[in-house]
Every structure is written in C-alpha cells, then in structure tokens.
C-alpha cells in the first residue's frame, strides 16, 4: 500500500498535496483498494466553497458508496474532468491521475488536524490490527 511522504492525510482516507495555497485532493491507495473497481466519482463544482471535514464528494463502486470529506476549507478551483470518463484512474493512480479536484485553501493552520505520512502509516497499522 502506497503512502507518499509529501502528502497530508485524513482519518477518512483522503489526501491533500499542498503547493502553496493550492491543494490537490484525492483518496488514498487504501481507500481505492477497499472500494474495489471504482465506477463513479461525484465531484464538487468549480467555485464551491468547502469546509474542512464536510462531505463534499462521493465515490462509488458496484456495491458500495462512500462520502469524501474535505481535508481543508477553501474554494474549488478545478476538478479532474478525466474522472467522468475514466473512474478507473482512481484505482490505477490514486495519488496522481486519479486526484479529485484542486482547491485554494483558506486556512493553512487546518493542517494541524491532518496527519503526515508517518502518522497515517501508524494509523493504518492500527486499522489493520
């Protein structure tokens, strides 16, 4: 299971990659594997205002549906248009091609409520027990 070093993670298995005020958002390798073949991602709209920890997207496989929660508060600046035709990108490449959207974060201090890679790794060990 891949847990890239440079990302921030939530307990609900979202990740965020920060580039200044800009953040890429997606779901983790663990989340995609647990769902199985992903059939659909219901994304927010460009311009939507998000609040940290609120359900802002959905991700579905044939027999399961999960909510995706916002790692940060802020504004959606772009969505991954490719996912509409290729939801399998989320399975194949959860941290890259399979990102969900890009947002401009409004409060960097919210980082404090997220985990870094080491903490997420430890958290995952707890789950697998």
């Amino acid at each position: 299971m891949k847990i890239p070093k440079d990302l921030f993670y939530t307990k609900d298995h979202e990740w965020a990659r920060l580039e200044g005020k800009k953040a890429y958002i997606g779901i983790t390798d663990y989340a995609q594997a647990a769902l199985g073949d992903i059939t659909f991602a219901g994304l927010p709209k460009k311009g939507d205002m998000l609040k940290q920890a609120e359900a802002i997207a959905t991700v579905e496989s044939v027999k399961a549906a999960s909510d995706v929660y916002a790692p940060f508060s802020g504004k959606v600046t772009a969505i991954n248009e490719d996912l509409a035709a290729h939801p399998e990108f989320i399975n194949r490449s959860p941290y890259d091609e399979g990102y969900f959207f890009i947002m401009e974060i409004s409060d960097e201090s919210e980082k404090a409520k997220l985990m870094d890679a080491a903490a997420y790794e430890q958290y995952m060990e707890g789950i697998s027990k």
């Binding site: 059939t39 659909f40 579905e60 496989s61 044939v62 027999k63 399961a64 549906a65």
Partner: peptide
C-alpha cells in the same frame, strides 16, 4: 447504478 438504492446507501 445500485449505489443510488436503499440496500447500499441506506439513509442516504
């Protein structure tokens, strides 16, 4: 498209 339905999504 069964994820719309009650047996999967329950109260949602």
């Amino acid at each position: 498209l069964q994820t719309r339905e009650q047996h999967i999504r329950r109260e949602k």
